[in-house]
């Protein structure tokens, strides 16, 4: 394979994983945009969804893509419950308190998972995970292709939800001006619960898709959580399109850095890009 083809292959890989990253970051960003709140346990929600998918596959034989709605609903419920019991009491509090509440949730979930499922790496071998598609000289693993396709479908679905449905419009109204939305008859408490649920459902869907391409472990959420923070900041905090742009950008940076420098250094370069963006455009590429 020529260097040019390898380069194209790298870009393809970056874009494919970028779609999944975009969905993860979207979950975080929707919550931040509406509630001005950062969920540090976002990565742990992804991890729980990965385990749910894994066990439905191993114990019941359900394919990840078929059990996807179940995982998504489970995570929606988990998000809504966390909102009621953990987030609501501290919404008006100082930022420090918000950080430490969800950080406590992170510690709790991660170590409970270690206890129940041990820290061994598990993989989920589907019938199609070894299939490789060829597009000219470029090879794409079917697992990556499917996960990126489904992530795109969900992203577009979420966009339509915010644009077209009454609830979506109510959520956007709340994010723009909470007090006015309240005066217009929007039940802000319900909107918050729904938003947190939706953001967590994004993590849920992303978790299912990640099982196709990534091994499962209790600490797997760490890197995805950090990456999604990076994506949100690079793209623009609270900005829908920002998360998508950032997702693809970071996916590309990661795979290009792995190809041009060394795979080991890919995250160093992602973090350097993150800090440079923070310094040049603290509000992110799409932020106002």
């Amino acid at each position: 394979m020529s260097w040019g083809m390898l380069f194209l292959q790298t870009i393809t890989n970056g874009l494919l994983i970028g779609a999944v990253y975009a969905l993860i970051a979207l979950g975080l960003n929707v919550i931040y945009g509406v509630m001005d709140f950062i969920n540090f346990a976002h990565g742990e929600f992804i991890m729980l969804s990965m385990y749910a998918t894994y066990f439905m596959f191993v114990l019941l034989g359900w394919d990840p893509l078929l059990s996807l709605p179940i995982s998504m609903l489970m995570l929606f419920g988990l998000g809504a419950i966390s909102e009621i019991f953990l987030v609501k009491p501290i919404l008006g509090e100082r930022m420090v308190i918000q950080v430490f509440t969800t950080y406590g949730l992170l510690l709790f979930l991660r170590n409970i998972a270690t206890f129940f499922w041990s820290s061994t790496w598990r993989t989920l071998p589907t019938s199609y995970s070894d299939v490789v598609l060829s597009l000219g000289e470029i090879r794409i693993s079917l697992g990556y292709a499917l996960s990126s396709l489904v992530a795109l479908i969900f992203t577009i679905g979420l966009y339509m939800f915010f644009k077209k449905t009454d609830t979506g419009i109510a959520i956007r109204a709340t994010s723009q001006d909470r007090e006015t939305a309240k005066l217009m008859g929007v039940d802000v408490n319900k909107i918050y619960m729904l938003t947190f649920g939706l953001g967590s459902a994004c993590a849920g869907v992303a978790g299912v898709l990640l099982t196709l391409v990534y091994p499962i472990q209790p600490e797997v959420g760490e890197i995805f959580c950090v990456l999604s923070f990076v994506i949100c900041v690079v793209g623009g905090m609270g900005n829908f399109m920002g998360a998508i742009l950032g997702g693809f950008l970071i996916g590309l940076t990661e795979s290009l850095a792995g190809f041009l420098v060394a795979p080991a250094y890919k995250h160093i370069i992602v973090f350097i890009v993150f800090i440079i963006t923070l310094l040049i455009r603290p509000k992110g590429l799409m932020g106002k």
């Binding site: 501290i90 308190i97 509440t101 406590g104 510690l107 709790f108 170590n111 270690t114 206890f115």
Partner: peptide, 16 residues
């Protein structure tokens, strides 16, 4: 990691 589970619960309770 059991102590970390307790730490997590403590962190949440103290925050709230």
């Amino acid at each position: 990691g059991f102590h970390l589970v307790i730490y997590g619960i403590l962190l949440i309770s103290v925050s709230i």
